[in-house]
Simulated assay, not measured.
Amino acid sequence: MRDEGGESDDSAIWAPNNTQEWYAARDAAAALRDVLTAAGMQWDFPYLRADLNAFGHGFVELGRVSPETAERMAELLRLAISCPHDFRSEAEGRKR
C-alpha cells in the first residue's frame, strides 16, 4: 500500500502551461488577436486560443468562422501579399 500523505515520486506530473511551447503559442495567439482587433475582426474569431497537443507542441486554434469571415481574411492576406513594402523590416528597425 502506498504511503498516505507522503511525497509522491510520480514522474508523470507535468505542467503544460509552464513550457516554452505554451508561451510561444500564447504569444502568437495574442499577436493574432491584436491584429484581428485592429482589422475590426475581434468578434469573428470566438474560438481563437493557444493550446498544446499531446506531444507538448504548441499551436494556435482559430476555430470555426463564417464564410464571410473567411472571405475577409482571404482578402486581407491577398492585400498583405501584394504589398510591396516590407513591414517586418520596418518594425524590427523601430525596436532597435
Rank of each mutant, 00 (worst) to 15 (best):
A28T: 15
V60P: 08
L62M: 10
A12Q: 12
C83F: 04
R72T: 15
M73Q: 01
D86I: 03
A31R: 09
G56R: 03
R64W: 01
E61G: 13
V65N: 02
S11C: 00
L52S: 08
E61H: 14
Q42V: 09
S82R: 12
Y23T: 12
Y23M: 10
R78Q: 14
N17C: 11
Y23Q: 14
A25G: 02
E90C: 02
A50V: 01
R49K: 10
M73E: 02
F45T: 04
A54F: 05
R94Y: 07
R88P: 00
N18I: 00
G63I: 03
G40K: 04
E71A: 14
Q42T: 08
E75I: 04
M73F: 09
G58D: 06
D3Q: 11
A50T: 02
G6E: 15
D3Y: 09
V60M: 10
E61A: 14
W22L: 04
A50N: 05
Y47G: 02
G40D: 04
W43P: 01
L79W: 10
E21F: 01
L48E: 10
A91C: 03
S11D: 10
I81H: 14
R78W: 09
G58H: 04
T19N: 03
P84L: 08
V60R: 08
S11M: 02
G58S: 06
G5F: 02
R26H: 11
R2F: 01
R96C: 08
R94N: 07
S11P: 00
D86Y: 02
A38D: 13
A74Q: 07
D51W: 05
A28Q: 15
S66C: 07
A38K: 10
F45S: 05
W22F: 10
A50I: 02
M1Q: 06
A29E: 13
G93L: 12
Q20E: 13
G5C: 02
M41Q: 13
T19F: 00
S66I: 08
K95V: 12
V65H: 03
T19Y: 00
I81S: 13
A50Q: 07
R2K: 08
I81D: 15
N53E: 05
L32V: 15
R49H: 09
A31F: 00
I81E: 15
G93Q: 14
S8R: 15
K95G: 06
T37M: 01
D27M: 09
T37C: 01
G63R: 05
E61D: 14
P46T: 11
D9M: 05
L76C: 05
A25D: 02
L32G: 06
D27H: 11
R2L: 07
E61W: 15
D44R: 12
R2M: 06
L62P: 02
R72M: 11
A24I: 08
T69A: 14
A15F: 11
E90L: 09
E68C: 03
G40W: 03
L36D: 07
L48Q: 10
A24N: 12
L62F: 12
R78N: 13
S11Y: 00
A12M: 10
E21S: 12
S66Y: 10
L52F: 04
N18H: 06
P84T: 12
L77P: 00
R88M: 13
E75A: 14
P16S: 08
S89P: 01
E68A: 15
T69L: 05
G6L: 15
G63C: 03
E7D: 09
N18E: 14
